[in-house]
Write a protein that binds this DNA or RNA. Structure first.
Lengths: 254, 254
DNA sequence: CCTGGCGTTGCGACATGTGCAACGGCCATT
DNA sequence: AATGGCCGTTGCACATGTCGCAACGCCAGG
């Protein structure tokens, strides 16, 4: 174990108790002031520690940001997976989980259909953002300005006659999706494939992921697929509840 | 600056992007695997890094705990006080800091005017919630439902002819305040006293406190007082920045 | 059975972090 | 105004703690 890092990290819980000046930190660490100063400086450069106007140190914004990311990254996929599997067992179709990141929508998990005719997709692959049901849900939840800006700069390829044609139509669709809390893609990407999707929300109500059930016409009609909507929404809500509800993993014992 | 600590801390944002195994961490740090291993171990012992079942590393729950604890121990008054003093030195008038708690707005700090004629107030005393500028800011940020409910159950004493008359007028005023991001009380409490106020916000943008400058007519007119608004807002923003731990200095090198 | 990849360990060389002592600014006290 | 004490900061010589190497053990895939 690294002594220097160990000492530096020991400063964090110490500062979590409240602001402290250099002398206090050095004392409680049991090291010389100059040593504490260098450690604090390094922590400061990484934004984990902030120096307030009275020169005392306290935890910094970066730590809060990291904590946030830790929570969000933590478990969506792990939490969601069993639910996706169960949904697949119930309906038999392909189930997807997707997130929005850097102006793209990515599948982060899927459970393949148990029917011989399957829809093609790959985890990690960007989805057709202008037509996919999950994309609509994720984009519909973006702040208005960002949503507008993104819609304007997208291309609107006409995969089929039902593909979203332009930014105006897309924004209108997003507004509807936002209102109703679910989305569909009825032959907008592949003529013969339909999807129904529902959002997964975090504790603050924001959409953190979206899940969908997809099936080709030859297996079920669009009408039949739509009857699965309540089931999909219930599954998504279950994931939302689990994701925002409990503290997921235990920490390491001291 | 400490090289070892620097490297160790560089791992955190790296893992924030997603889980990574030892080799990836070592590569992106540009160090030998054994070095990365020791750093990760140290981070792990402090709970900042979690090792999931597939042996890959990710950010740990301890980060969240630290951030949470730091939030709770944040004392606005302590952080704000030097700023209040400085503002008082610049304008000479009485400066107040207030928070909302249990359906009341309380002064939690003040710096007295340096003019002989002073406004009376006491720290800890509930303020006139329907007219005080700081109260307007604090209530304007409440969730809509809570704000409505509170407005309905309040009394609207007519301290002066300019006092807020009823819930309807109050809610309208709060909406305006919410929109403009600052508030005034021009003779609504005491005929001869005016205030201008600005909000202090936490990292999440929510209003955690409000500060105001107050002065009687005999010292400065309402118009003159209003010219201080930019200064008051700047001070409030400075407190907000510090309270949320925003580090104004340079970022960390890649 | 072998091969390749990955995490892990022990160790010598040396870069790095350490504590000391001295400096300088700030504030309160005289 | 002068003084003394407090605290953060800096430069430096020493040795401590850290680094990278190489080798090992383990597991999975061929």
């Amino acid at each position: 174990m690294s002594q220097t890092v160990d000492r530096a990290l020991s400063i964090l819980p110490l500062l979590a108790e409240g602001p402290a000046d250099l002398g206090q930190v050095a004392d409680r660490l049991g090291v010389h002031k100059s040593t504490a100063l260098r450690l604090l400086r390094t922590l400061h450069e990484h934004g984990l520690v902030y120096r307030q106007s009275d020169q005392r140190y306290r935890l910094g914004a970066r730590l809060f940001a990291l904590a946030q990311e830790a929570m969000e990254n933590l478990d969506i996929r792990e939490i969601a997976h069993p639910h996706l599997v169960r949904l697949n067992e119930q309906c038999g179709h392909t189930v997807h989980l997707a997130v929005y990141e850097e102006q793209e929508v990515l599948y982060i998990d899927k459970v393949d259909s148990r029917y011989p005719v399957r829809m093609y997709s790959r985890i990690g692959k960007p989805v057709a953002i202008t037509v996919a049901a999950v994309a609509k849900l994720l984009l519909a939840d973006l702040p208005t300005a960002e949503r507008r800006a993104l819609a304007e700069q997208l291309d609107y390829p006409l995969y089929t006659a039902r593909s979203t044609a332009n930014a105006e139509a897309f924004l209108k669709e997003l507004a509807a999706v936002r209102e109703q809390g679910w989305a569909t893609d009825l032959g907008g990407h592949e003529e013969s494939i339909n999807c129904v999707a529902a959002p997964v929300r975090g504790a603050d109500g924001r959409v953190v992921a979206a899940m969908s059930v997809s099936a080709p016409n030859v297996v079920v009609t669009a009408e039949e697929l739509l009857t699965l909507l309540p089931l999909v929404r219930r599954t998504a809500d279950a994931i939302s509840g689990e994701y925002s509800g409990r503290t997921p993993v235990k920490g390491t014992p001291a």
